[in-house]
Write a protein that binds this DNA or RNA. Structure first.
Length: 636
RNA sequence: GCCACCCUAGCUCAGUCGGUAGAGCAGCCGCCUUGUAAGCGGCAGGUCGGGAGUUCAAUUCUCCCGGGUGGCUCCA
């Protein structure tokens, strides 16, 4: 609510006409009025007052009383005046606020004159002109616990800091060459990008924030058409639904990432999804992490939903008894979910979500030297993992590295070694000082067809949080030391892995190649199609030859062409057609998606082909009924 | 969150200069028994995203809300 206070000799007004069509008639005697020696309050009720008109009226009454007290007047004129605010309440709630305010002031012993709401009025006013006679205030209702309006998001110090952040950009090539970048005429300059177009697009995205394409990301249509993932209007934006086939793929990715991180040596733990705002360490951590939180009201406190696994693992680590002999030491959790209340317009399909699944692995290391060494160990884990998920490295990604100037000066060799290992030039953002809890952070960014970049794998060297959370280890002398902490997400958010796979497939479509998932992720690996109903029984028996393979059977009585088409639209990698010939020969006619060829082979041979190509990856059985005719449609 | 645009059958889309809507595919029923990306016929299917307003009449015009897309901002 906004109020303009005027201490007046007199105020006179006269109704000239209705301002709102919906407003009721008023009696003749209310159509004009005059007050003398009064405190006039021009009032605008605002949107935010609608939630609790009573509380708004109460807060306003308190303010008016405060001002009236200083002016020693008991006479108050309330004058509805819409022009004080650009965010007005709707007429009904506004009238409710004003009525409640009038009643409240009456109760407090004031003589209250209220001019009518919803009418144009002419007025004359004589203002006294002393220092207190003109005054405006913006009044916000105090939140009472029972009806508290929770802030939709928390904007913390880190977010604000990031907005002020000044940084400088460079390209670091594999020979250690360091090229400062600048923006000239909207284009990134300072490095010859001729052989590195995607790095150019990434730098352009990061530095100039300008987009060259303005299209819907192709993965959105694909995720829907393939019945993998879809929007869920019944939830909050950025919280998606997964259909059986999407759940299958996501589940396999989740299992695979976790498997690899355990093999690397991390210990898997599980932590709560919500945390107390008032916990001292968390409170200060929140202010160093640039993210917006979901806020939840528990029965007796306000909590935020985790946006990563960091604090859960830190709270465990602070209670652990640790020796230098045990470091480096890693804890791991696959967070389903991590929550970030991203701004509405930032959400995009699977690229940017409010609820996402992030593998998060924190390693405690003794010092910078061990941090650097161990970061490279983890880099190899992530490298192999993404390769085995179906990506080409380093081709499919661009490194963005953020580093503080002091770290660069002291450990530039490490950064150069990293670029050499990566095998292509990397983009470096350098900060003159340490704004966040890390001194170095890298991300592997997938740059899509629309020149949008999305970070997948990321690791950081954290120099602050051990102190903040009280995490210590005993060194050789038995003295307590604060370790450094590495923050690795080996694959990045699982949803983003799926996003990148779909975007890659979309690029294949554009290039005239058949789009595919890696075999171990294909919802159907082998589709058996009988030529006609006569072969259906034989085809049914054939399923038994594909133990350990996701094989299904098109038992509809559609034509062969139609059944082939259906399988192709589902991206089935191996389509087995069974007719009279095959029954007689005992061989299968296999339509191979990747080569578009038809090949003759035995059932055993095909099974072995699939088993070999998926060895070492997790397996899940079919997500839906083995018979096509028994499957529902989730989405046309 | 801000600015712009979009929302019609399960899906993809027509359409109504304001008089409550149509196609293809999918679904169901029947015929066909199929040789490598859509066989034929019939039936059924809609609070035209939700609410309010203007109007004799709103899917159509206006406003609000929701969902989505693009841009800004921002990130795993």
């Amino acid at each position: 609510m906004r109020v303009l206070f005027l201490h007046v000799d007199y105020l006179e007004y006269e109704v000239t006409g209705k301002a709102l069509k919906s407003i009721g008639e008023i009696p003749q005697e209310r159509k004009h009025g005059r007050v003398e020696e009064a405190l006039v309050c021009f009032l605008s009720a605002e949107k935010r007052d609608e939630k609790d008109p009573k509380a708004a009226a109460l807060a306003a009454a308190k303010n008016i009383e405060d001002v009236a007290g200083q002016l020693h007047t008991k006479r108050i004129a309330l004058y509805p005046y819409a022009h004080l605010s650009s965010d007005l309440a709707a007429p009904e709630p506004a009238q409710a606020v004003l009525a409640a305010l009038e009643a409240e002031l009456g109760k407090r012993g004031y003589e209250v004159h209220a001019s009518p709401f919803g009418y144009y009025k002419s007025f004359r006013v004589s203002v006294k002109g002393h220092p207190l006679s003109e005054l405006s205030r913006e009044i916000v209702a105090e939140a009472t616990p029972a009806v508290a309006e929770e802030p939709k998001e928390m904007v913390n110090e880190a977010l604000k800091a990031e907005q002020r952040l000044v940084s400088h950009w460079h390209v670091l090539d594999t020979q250690g060459g360091f090229h400062p970048l600048s923006i000239e005429a909207g284009r990134v300059a300072g490095f010859d990008f001729a052989a590195h177009d995607r790095l150019r697009r990434f730098a352009q995205y990061e530095m100039a924030k300008s987009r060259e394409v303005k299209e819907e990301p192709p993965h959105v249509r694909l995720m829907q058409e393939l019945e993998l993932v879809d929007y869920e209007p019944g939830s909050d934006p950025g919280n998606l639904r997964y259909y059986p086939k999407g759940r299958l793929i996501k589940g396999l990715l989740e299992e695979f990432v976790s498997q690899r991180v355990r093999e690397y040596g991390a210990m898997e733990v599980e932590c709560p999804v919500m945390y107390d705002f008032e916990h001292p360490a968390l409170k200060s951590y929140l202010n160093r992490f640039p993210a917006r939180q979901y806020v939840v009201q528990t029965p007796n406190k306000r909590a935020f939903l985790r946006f990563s696994a960091c604090f859960g693992q830190f709270l465990i680590m602070k209670d652990m008894v640790l020796s230098y002999k045990q470091l480096p030491l890693s804890l791991y959790e696959l967070t389903r979910y991590s929550f970030r209340a991203e701004q509405r317009g930032e959400l995009a399909g699977l690229r940017r979500l409010r609820a996402f699944t992030m593998p998060d692995c924190h390693a405690l290391v003794t010092d910078v030297a061990q941090a650097k060494e161990h970061m490279m160990v983890r880099m190899e884990v992530a490298w192999k993992l993404l390769q085995d998920c179906g990506f080409s490295l380093p081709d499919d990604f661009e490194v963005g590295m953020r580093v503080t100037e002091p770290f660069w000066k002291e450990h530039g060799d490490f950064v150069k070694a990293y670029a050499r290992r990566w095998g292509k030039p990397i983009l470096i953002e350098m900060w003159s000082e340490q704004f966040f809890y890390f001194v170095l952070k890298y991300e592997w960014n997938f740059v899509d067809a629309n020149d949008k970049a999305a970070a997948l794998t990321t690791d950081q060297i954290d120099t602050e949080n051990a102190k903040r959370f009280g995490i210590t280890y005993a060194d050789e002398k038995g003295e307590k030391q604060f370790p450094y902490i590495l923050h690795l997400s080996p694959s990045g958010a699982v949803e983003r892995v799926l996003y990148a796979l779909l975007e890659k497939a979309a690029a294949d479509i554009k290039a005239g190649k058949p789009p595919m998932f890696p075999l171990w992720l294909s919802p159907t690996q082998v589709r058996i199609i009988p030529v006609s109903g006569d072969q259906l029984e034989h085809a049914r028996k054939l399923l038994a030859a594909f133990d350990g393979v996701r094989a299904d059977l098109d038992d509809t009585n559609d034509t062969l062409g139609k059944k082939i088409r259906r399988a192709e639209k589902e991206w089935v990698p191996y389509i087995v057609v069974v007719g009279k010939k095959e029954i007689e020969s005992g061989k299968l006619n296999v339509r191979v998606r990747s080569t578009k060829a038809q090949e003759e082979m035995t059932p055993d041979r095909l099974r072995k082909l699939v088993m070999d190509a998926t060895a070492g990856r997790p397996f899940r059985p079919l997500a839906e009924n083995v018979l096509i005719s028994a499957r529902p449609i989730f989405r046309g």
